[in-house]
Amino acid sequence: MTEVLMPNTLAEALSMISKDGHDVLILGSGSDVIPRIREREIEPKKVLDLSGLGSELNYIRTEGKVIRIGALVTVRQIIDNELFKGRLDAFLQAGRMFGGPQIRNMATVGGNLGAASSSEDLIPIFIALDARVKMASIDGDRLVPVSKLVVAKRQIDRRPNEIIREIYFEMPDESSWTAFFKAGRRNSLIIDLINMAMYLKLNIDGTKIEDIRIALNRVRGKTPERAYKTEEYLRGKRIENETIARAQEVLDSEVQLSSDFRASAEYRKSLDKVILARLINNCRDRIVEGRRTGN
């Protein structure tokens, strides 16, 4: 690194990368990027530091049903925010297992989306919520559905002149819940084996699955995706042991993973199946409980 760009406003930041943005590395907190720079996995010449943009990019806002999270919001801020206590439980479940407390104070939402190494914990949750990413550039904002954001490992649909400004989604209604689970301990160099996020909505009388979105860090390759076939099978079904067993089979055939030095494909798949059942039951129980207690 020989040059550091330190803008004080978003407009200034965007004009700094309006040309030649491709050789500028954007820096959120640096918890993903700094270890990689030090290992010489990446050798950026120029860095654009976002830490001066807190007043513009650090907010959690609601507008009607829509929740907007600025790119510089940290995992800690999400866990501490009342908005996430309840139907957005997936964030709390992920937050509790996210690095250690210091990492949670650092890690930003924008950085999680930008890292895209296939082990990020927030990305599958945002996919399950069908969130949209707002990219800012001097030409204006561009929206990218988060399900289309990660195009390959360590590669996102971001143009060189763009900065992730915000991610937003709709608050799930009272018939729905979100849940998250990951297996495999994460530290700076070891990545999770499996993570899965779920959004589940029950029908009016609470007997059937009205809608479901299931997102995993890996489905067919090293990018987070939805398990569309499993979702399709589950939609409209009653939640019974037999249905869950059948859904596990569908997931097993839908997920195409290869073995690596961390775990075999079989092991990953058997984890996926267990987590699937656990998340379905968890969402259902919480919705039913909420109905009973009137929350």
């Binding site: 700094i34 210091q102 650092m106």
Partner: peptide, 8 residues
């Protein structure tokens, strides 16, 4: 609290 080894 943050990690000063992962902060420029």
């Amino acid at each position: 609290p943050v990690l000063s080894c992962l902060t420029f």
